[in-house]
Design a protein around this nucleic acid. Structure first.
Lengths: 100, 100
DNA sequence: TGAATAGGTTAGCGCACGCTAACGCATTTT
DNA sequence: AAAATGCGTTAGCGTGCGCTAACCTATTCA
Protein backbone atom coordinates (compact mmCIF):
# COMPACT_ATOMS: atom_id res chain seq x y z
CA UNK A 1 0.00 0.00 0.00
CA UNK A 2 2.05 2.93 1.34
CA UNK A 3 0.02 5.40 -0.70
CA UNK A 4 -0.77 8.26 1.63
CA UNK A 5 -4.29 8.66 0.31
CA UNK A 6 -5.13 5.02 0.87
CA UNK A 7 -3.51 5.06 4.27
CA UNK A 8 -5.51 8.04 5.41
CA UNK A 9 -8.79 6.84 3.94
CA UNK A 10 -9.34 4.27 6.66
CA UNK A 11 -11.39 5.62 9.60
CA UNK A 12 -9.44 3.75 12.25
CA UNK A 13 -6.14 4.97 10.92
CA UNK A 14 -7.39 8.54 10.78
CA UNK A 15 -8.53 8.24 14.37
CA UNK A 16 -5.13 6.85 15.35
CA UNK A 17 -3.40 9.81 13.77
CA UNK A 18 -5.69 12.16 15.65
CA UNK A 19 -5.13 10.39 18.94
CA UNK A 20 -1.38 10.49 18.43
CA UNK A 21 -1.56 14.18 17.65
CA UNK A 22 -1.66 15.01 21.34
CA UNK A 23 1.29 12.85 22.29
CA UNK A 24 2.97 9.49 22.46
CA UNK A 25 0.78 6.53 23.30
CA UNK A 26 1.21 2.79 23.76
CA UNK A 27 -0.52 0.20 21.61
CA UNK A 28 -2.92 -1.00 24.29
CA UNK A 29 -3.75 2.56 25.28
CA UNK A 30 -4.72 3.13 21.69
CA UNK A 31 -6.44 -0.21 21.18
CA UNK A 32 -8.62 0.41 24.23
CA UNK A 33 -10.37 3.15 22.29
CA UNK A 34 -11.46 0.92 19.43
CA UNK A 35 -13.98 -1.89 19.12
CA UNK A 36 -11.53 -4.08 17.20
CA UNK A 37 -8.74 -6.32 18.40
CA UNK A 38 -5.31 -5.15 19.49
CA UNK A 39 -3.87 -7.04 16.56
CA UNK A 40 -5.91 -5.00 14.14
CA UNK A 41 -4.68 -1.77 15.70
CA UNK A 42 -1.13 -3.06 15.67
CA UNK A 43 -1.39 -3.75 11.97
CA UNK A 44 -2.77 -0.28 11.35
CA UNK A 45 0.10 1.23 13.28
CA UNK A 46 2.66 -0.70 11.28
CA UNK A 47 1.05 0.62 8.13
CA UNK A 48 1.25 4.16 9.47
CA UNK A 49 4.94 3.61 10.19
CA UNK A 50 5.54 2.30 6.68
CA UNK A 51 3.82 5.35 5.31
CA UNK A 52 6.09 7.56 7.36
CA UNK A 53 3.27 9.14 9.31
CA UNK A 54 4.27 7.69 12.64
CA UNK A 55 7.37 6.53 14.48
CA UNK A 56 7.79 4.05 17.32
CA UNK A 57 10.21 3.56 20.17
CA UNK A 58 10.48 0.92 22.83
CA UNK A 59 10.34 1.72 26.50
CA UNK A 60 10.40 -1.29 28.74
CA UNK A 61 7.74 -3.64 27.54
CA UNK A 62 5.75 -0.84 25.99
CA UNK A 63 6.01 0.34 22.46
CA UNK A 64 5.26 4.01 22.19
CA UNK A 65 3.98 5.49 18.97
CA UNK A 66 4.14 9.13 18.10
CA UNK A 67 3.28 11.27 15.12
CA UNK A 68 6.14 11.97 12.77
CA UNK A 69 6.46 15.63 11.91
CA UNK A 70 7.78 15.07 8.40
CA UNK A 71 4.92 12.69 7.70
CA UNK A 72 2.31 15.16 8.87
CA UNK A 73 3.90 17.73 6.63
CA UNK A 74 3.74 15.40 3.66
CA UNK A 75 0.10 14.87 4.42
CA UNK A 76 -0.60 18.57 4.50
CA UNK A 77 1.23 19.07 1.23
CA UNK A 78 -0.76 16.23 -0.29
CA UNK A 79 -4.02 17.96 0.55
CA UNK A 80 -2.73 21.28 -0.72
CA UNK A 81 -1.57 19.76 -3.97
CA UNK A 82 -4.90 18.14 -4.58
CA UNK A 83 -6.70 21.32 -3.70
CA UNK A 84 -5.45 22.85 -6.90
CA UNK A 85 -5.95 26.38 -8.08
CA UNK A 86 -9.02 25.48 -10.09
CA UNK A 87 -10.80 23.93 -7.16
CA UNK A 88 -10.04 26.89 -4.99
CA UNK A 89 -11.16 29.31 -7.64
CA UNK A 90 -14.38 27.44 -8.18
CA UNK A 91 -15.19 27.54 -4.50
CA UNK A 92 -14.47 31.22 -4.03
CA UNK A 93 -16.59 31.98 -7.07
CA UNK A 94 -19.44 29.92 -5.70
CA UNK A 95 -19.20 31.59 -2.33
CA UNK A 96 -19.25 34.98 -3.95
CA UNK A 97 -22.34 34.21 -5.98
CA UNK A 98 -24.36 32.81 -3.10
CA UNK A 99 -22.87 35.38 -0.81
CA UNK A 100 -22.35 33.21 2.24
CA UNK B 1 -19.71 3.47 -0.11
CA UNK B 2 -20.63 7.17 -0.24
CA UNK B 3 -18.01 7.99 2.36
CA UNK B 4 -16.19 11.05 1.11
CA UNK B 5 -12.82 9.79 2.28
CA UNK B 6 -13.17 6.52 0.43
CA UNK B 7 -14.50 8.26 -2.64
CA UNK B 8 -11.56 10.63 -2.81
CA UNK B 9 -8.95 8.00 -2.03
CA UNK B 10 -9.11 6.49 -5.50
CA UNK B 11 -6.56 8.02 -7.90
CA UNK B 12 -8.87 7.93 -10.90
CA UNK B 13 -11.66 9.63 -9.02
CA UNK B 14 -9.32 12.32 -7.74
CA UNK B 15 -8.13 12.92 -11.28
CA UNK B 16 -11.73 13.16 -12.45
CA UNK B 17 -12.48 15.78 -9.85
CA UNK B 18 -9.44 17.74 -10.92
CA UNK B 19 -10.37 17.50 -14.60
CA UNK B 20 -13.90 18.64 -13.84
CA UNK B 21 -12.56 21.56 -11.85
CA UNK B 22 -11.99 23.55 -15.03
CA UNK B 23 -15.41 22.93 -16.48
CA UNK B 24 -18.08 20.58 -17.70
CA UNK B 25 -16.95 17.55 -19.64
CA UNK B 26 -18.56 14.57 -21.34
CA UNK B 27 -17.91 10.99 -20.34
CA UNK B 28 -15.91 10.09 -23.41
CA UNK B 29 -13.88 13.28 -23.16
CA UNK B 30 -12.97 12.22 -19.65
CA UNK B 31 -12.48 8.55 -20.45
CA UNK B 32 -10.06 9.43 -23.23
CA UNK B 33 -7.62 10.59 -20.58
CA UNK B 34 -7.49 7.29 -18.73
CA UNK B 35 -6.05 3.90 -19.60
CA UNK B 36 -9.19 2.09 -18.41
CA UNK B 37 -12.49 1.47 -20.12
CA UNK B 38 -15.25 4.01 -20.52
CA UNK B 39 -17.41 1.82 -18.34
CA UNK B 40 -14.97 2.10 -15.49
CA UNK B 41 -14.96 5.88 -15.76
CA UNK B 42 -18.73 5.92 -15.96
CA UNK B 43 -18.95 3.94 -12.75
CA UNK B 44 -16.52 6.30 -11.05
CA UNK B 45 -18.62 9.24 -12.16
CA UNK B 46 -21.79 7.69 -10.78
CA UNK B 47 -20.02 7.23 -7.48
CA UNK B 48 -18.98 10.85 -7.50
CA UNK B 49 -22.58 11.83 -8.12
CA UNK B 50 -23.78 9.65 -5.25
CA UNK B 51 -21.23 11.29 -3.01
CA UNK B 52 -22.56 14.69 -4.02
CA UNK B 53 -19.26 15.84 -5.48
CA UNK B 54 -20.48 16.04 -9.04
CA UNK B 55 -23.68 16.66 -10.97
CA UNK B 56 -24.73 15.59 -14.46
CA UNK B 57 -27.01 16.94 -17.15
CA UNK B 58 -27.97 15.60 -20.51
CA UNK B 59 -27.38 17.51 -23.68
CA UNK B 60 -28.30 15.63 -26.82
CA UNK B 61 -26.61 12.28 -26.64
CA UNK B 62 -23.92 13.59 -24.38
CA UNK B 63 -23.95 13.50 -20.64
CA UNK B 64 -22.07 16.41 -19.18
CA UNK B 65 -20.57 16.20 -15.74
CA UNK B 66 -19.57 19.14 -13.66
CA UNK B 67 -18.22 19.71 -10.19
CA UNK B 68 -20.83 20.44 -7.57
CA UNK B 69 -19.98 23.48 -5.47
CA UNK B 70 -21.60 22.19 -2.31
CA UNK B 71 -19.72 18.92 -2.65
CA UNK B 72 -16.40 20.65 -3.06
CA UNK B 73 -17.18 22.65 0.03
CA UNK B 74 -17.97 19.52 2.00
CA UNK B 75 -14.65 18.12 0.87
CA UNK B 76 -12.80 21.18 2.04
CA UNK B 77 -14.54 21.05 5.39
CA UNK B 78 -13.69 17.39 5.71
CA UNK B 79 -10.00 18.13 5.30
CA UNK B 80 -10.21 21.01 7.73
CA UNK B 81 -12.00 18.94 10.33
CA UNK B 82 -9.42 16.21 10.12
CA UNK B 83 -6.63 18.70 10.28
CA UNK B 84 -7.53 19.36 13.87
CA UNK B 85 -5.97 21.86 16.20
CA UNK B 86 -3.50 19.38 17.60
CA UNK B 87 -2.12 18.45 14.20
CA UNK B 88 -1.76 22.06 13.26
CA UNK B 89 -0.06 22.91 16.52
CA UNK B 90 2.34 20.02 16.16
CA UNK B 91 3.35 21.12 12.71
CA UNK B 92 3.89 24.73 13.56
CA UNK B 93 5.99 23.68 16.53
CA UNK B 94 8.06 21.40 14.36
CA UNK B 95 8.56 24.10 11.79
CA UNK B 96 9.64 26.54 14.44
CA UNK B 97 12.20 24.15 15.88
CA UNK B 98 13.81 23.28 12.55
CA UNK B 99 13.36 26.84 11.41
CA UNK B 100 12.22 26.19 7.89
C1' DT C 1 12.02 -18.90 38.44
C1' DG C 2 7.40 -18.90 37.08
C1' DA C 3 3.31 -16.02 35.89
C1' DA C 4 1.71 -12.04 33.74
C1' DT C 5 1.84 -8.33 30.56
C1' DA C 6 2.89 -5.79 26.00
C1' DG C 7 3.04 -6.38 21.44
C1' DG C 8 4.73 -8.30 16.84
C1' DT C 9 3.58 -12.14 13.28
C1' DT C 10 1.07 -15.25 10.49
C1' DA C 11 -2.76 -17.79 8.30
C1' DG C 12 -7.04 -17.52 6.78
C1' DC C 13 -11.77 -15.66 6.18
C1' DG C 14 -15.34 -12.53 4.29
C1' DC C 15 -16.06 -8.93 1.61
C1' DA C 16 -15.97 -4.92 -1.30
C1' DC C 17 -13.45 -2.66 -4.79
C1' DG C 18 -11.97 -1.69 -9.63
C1' DC C 19 -12.27 -3.47 -13.84
C1' DT C 20 -13.82 -5.68 -18.34
C1' DA C 21 -17.15 -7.61 -21.43
C1' DA C 22 -21.50 -7.67 -23.16
C1' DC C 23 -25.78 -5.72 -23.62
C1' DG C 24 -29.58 -2.22 -24.04
C1' DC C 25 -31.44 2.34 -24.82
C1' DA C 26 -31.53 7.09 -26.65
C1' DT C 27 -30.02 10.31 -29.87
C1' DT C 28 -27.74 11.79 -33.95
C1' DT C 29 -26.08 11.05 -38.65
C1' DT C 30 -26.38 9.32 -43.37
C1' DA D 1 -34.98 3.70 -42.05
C1' DA D 2 -30.54 2.08 -41.01
C1' DA D 3 -26.07 2.81 -39.06
C1' DA D 4 -23.36 4.97 -35.71
C1' DT D 5 -22.43 7.21 -31.45
C1' DG D 6 -22.76 8.20 -26.30
C1' DC D 7 -23.58 6.27 -22.15
C1' DG D 8 -25.84 3.62 -18.33
C1' DT D 9 -26.32 -1.28 -16.43
C1' DT D 10 -25.25 -5.79 -15.15
C1' DA D 11 -22.63 -10.07 -14.26
C1' DG D 12 -18.60 -11.84 -13.08
C1' DC D 13 -13.58 -11.97 -12.16
C1' DG D 14 -9.26 -11.16 -9.56
C1' DT D 15 -7.31 -8.97 -5.87
C1' DG D 16 -6.33 -6.70 -1.70
C1' DC D 17 -8.26 -4.95 2.54
C1' DG D 18 -9.61 -5.26 7.54
C1' DC D 19 -10.20 -8.35 10.85
C1' DT D 20 -9.80 -12.39 14.19
C1' DA D 21 -7.55 -16.27 16.20
C1' DA D 22 -3.60 -18.40 17.54
C1' DC D 23 1.05 -18.33 18.44
C1' DC D 24 5.66 -16.46 19.71
C1' DT D 25 9.06 -13.26 21.90
C1' DA D 26 10.63 -9.85 25.23
C1' DT D 27 10.08 -7.53 29.53
C1' DT D 28 8.34 -7.00 34.24
C1' DC D 29 6.37 -8.68 38.60
C1' DA D 30 5.64 -12.15 42.34
Amino acid sequence: MSDLWEVISDPHRRALVQLLADGEKSVSALAARFPVSRSAISQHLLLLVEAGLVTARKEGRNRLYRLHDAGALRLQKMFDTFWSNELDLLLTEAKHIHDN
